[in-house]
Nucleic acid binder design. Structure first.
Lengths: 186, 186
DNA sequence: TCCTTATGTAAACACTCGTTTACTTACGTC
DNA sequence: GACGTAAGTAAACGAGTGTTTACATAAGGA
């Protein structure tokens, strides 16, 4: 006989986690509007009604998924002298995990989801970044960071043009690295 | 008596134009998804069914509205030595007219509307800009322009943070001007 | 003047989607 | 081992939306 790990057929915590995990995948892939509750629950292998029971609705589920995605990593742990290279590497290469910024983007079209994305963006990205930059121009630096980041993701994911769809052109990557580094250095 | 201009109660061209005009307003204000056909036709003062009759559906109407918005002005007519200042002025100050880029943004969440926005963005903005920049790095320059522009609108309109909502902070504006000018100069 | 056609309207249709309700079933406890 | 509660499912509900259909009416020529 094998070492039987306790895996009961019915486990609220487990299914709740499964829904949350599936939600991150589907929201990131299809965006808030086009990601249906039925899509998410089908991926999780459960009934659509459980979204309302465990999370209180699609909107709350989105908030939880976005919150969870934001917990995976922070950018204020990067070395300041290598900020440019490392942030671009993170943005461009780590496409395996669920990245929060593209998720926030997709929410922008929905007024309710946008409000949630705004709040989380401010509390969990903008403000920490501002404190990390420091100095009198910290707010402008944080704003510059947001603009370049959002511009990158908008260009790559939301409205990809034929030339650079999917990959990141080397010269464009170099420019991005200089751009992000300049925010820290100036 | 007054100079009676011919204003027949029923004029197909006139109502068609009224729908198109209203569509530009509503699409720009609420985005593709949240702008309902009933919203648009109510503003135009006509029946919702006329959208399908005159344009072939909401999606085609969106395409026509975006196309019309793109016809209002081009950016390749700006003097190259003043490109930075003037493009920022156009983006930041001319909020009275319907600007196409924010409209394109809102379409990104809908897969069908996104395809239209992508094509128009490439044909009417990206390619002309590439030719205008010229040189071996023209494609990279055009991409940089797109990233900064989309980043600006994303930050200002789609996910506005409390600090700079609505207005454009002077130091941020200065940075944007330098950024756009650098694309032309480098 | 009458009649055809284009123009516009009202209402219903068809479909999607998030959510709720009623019911079934497995788990833990006495 | 029976029972009560939690976990899960199936199906229907209700609201919203783009579109189509059936009908009304103004315009303009024969």
């Amino acid at each position: 006989m094998e070492t039987t790990i306790e895996t009961p057929a019915r486990d609220a915590d487990r299914t709740r986690a499964a829904i949350l995990h599936a939600a991150q995948q589907v929201f990131a892939a299809k965006g808030f509007a086009e990601a249906g509750v039925r899509d998410i629950t089908a991926l999780a292998g459960v009934n659509p009604s459980l979204v309302s029971r465990y999370f209180g609705g699609k909107l709350k589920l989105f908030e939880a998924a976005l919150d969870a995605a934001l917990n995976t990593r922070l950018m204020t742990d990067l070395p300041k002298d290598q900020f440019g290279k490392m942030i671009v590497a993170r943005f461009a290469d780590e496409d395996d995990r669920v990245s929060p910024l593209p998720m926030m983007f997709s929410a922008a079209a929905d007024s309710e989801a946008r409000a949630i994305a705004q709040r989380l963006l401010r509390e969990r990205v903008f403000e920490p970044l501002k404190d990390w930059f420091g100095g009198g121009d910290a707010d402008v630096k944080a704003a510059r960071f947001m603009m370049v980041s959002l511009g990158f993701f908008a260009y790559r994911d939301q409205l990809p043009l034929a030339e650079f769809a999917g990959r990141v052109e080397p010269r464009l990557r170099q420019w991005l690295e200089r751009e992000f580094q300049a925010i820290v250095d100036e």
